[in-house]
Simulated scan of single mutants.
Amino acid sequence: MKRFHFMLVGVLIATSMLVTAPSLQMSYAHQRALFNINGQDYLFVVGSLNEPISVDDKTGVELRAMYPDPSNPIDSRANGTKPVTGLEESLKVEISAGDKNMTLNLEPAFGELGSYESEPFYPTIATTYNYRIFGDINGTAFDVTFSCNPAGGEAAQSDNSTVQISEGVERKALLGGFGCPEERIGFPEPYISQYEVSQALNRTSN
């Protein structure tokens, strides 16, 4: 009987780990930034949708905004956090890679207060992508850029120093990061991206 009990407990623990692992991975694959904006603390969690991502994957910018737990302000899962709603009215995101850029709206994520997503896009090359979130928060101009890390989010260095971003905007902490789109591995033939196909077609038509 005891043996059966221990086996049952083991199965339950393993199942819970399988269920929670994806959400934990997604959370830590994003970058957390603690700001003070016009006297109010905000915790932002920024990254790409559906991480990790590769070239030609469907993705988008994800922003989770919350009022942090005063007892643990850099923990986005702390019990005392409260979602910041309504930012779709005052914020946009500019995505840039190399000399190309485009500006998209941030819309509330379905069923998740304080979570916002950009319109989807498909990264066509493996390079550094920058997400510039700009607009107005709490009556104060906000303009901050978050960049992916080619070495992966786990390689990002934390920074707990206080940095004055602009008038009325102070960054108090920066933790973690999010990875850049990676090249796909093709098998048994090398993978050819949609961008490479379009370039080849353009060359043959000229």
Rank of each mutant, 00 (worst) to 15 (best):
E117I: 04
Y131F: 15
D57V: 02
Q31N: 12
A21Y: 15
G80M: 10
N36D: 13
A14F: 13
L24T: 08
E107F: 12
R77V: 09
N79T: 13
S96K: 06
E62F: 09
D69S: 13
R64G: 08
L43I: 14
A14R: 05
T128C: 07
S118R: 00
I53D: 03
L24Q: 10
L18Y: 13
A126S: 14
S115Y: 01
I53L: 11
L63R: 01
V19H: 03
Q25W: 15
L106T: 00
Y28M: 13
R132V: 12
A78L: 10
Y131D: 05
V84L: 04
M66H: 02
T59D: 07
Y131L: 15
N36W: 00
G86W: 05
N79Q: 14
N36C: 02
V9D: 06
Q40T: 14
L49T: 11
E89V: 06
E119I: 04
M102E: 12
D41Q: 15
N72G: 10
T59C: 09
V55Y: 07
D99E: 13
G111H: 02
Y67H: 15
D99F: 15
N38Y: 06
T127W: 00
R132D: 10
P73N: 12
K58S: 08
G114W: 04
E62Y: 08
N36T: 13
D99S: 14
L91F: 02
V93W: 01
D75Q: 12
L63F: 06
R64I: 13
N130A: 08
H30D: 11
V45I: 13
P70M: 03
Q40H: 09
T127S: 03
E107I: 12
P68G: 10
V61I: 12
S90N: 07
R3Y: 12
Q25D: 15
Q31F: 06
S90H: 02
V55H: 06
S23C: 05
P83E: 09
D56Q: 12
E117H: 05
G114I: 07
A126D: 07
S48M: 15
G10S: 10
G39N: 07
I53W: 04
L63Q: 02
G10W: 09
T124V: 08
T124R: 14
E117N: 04
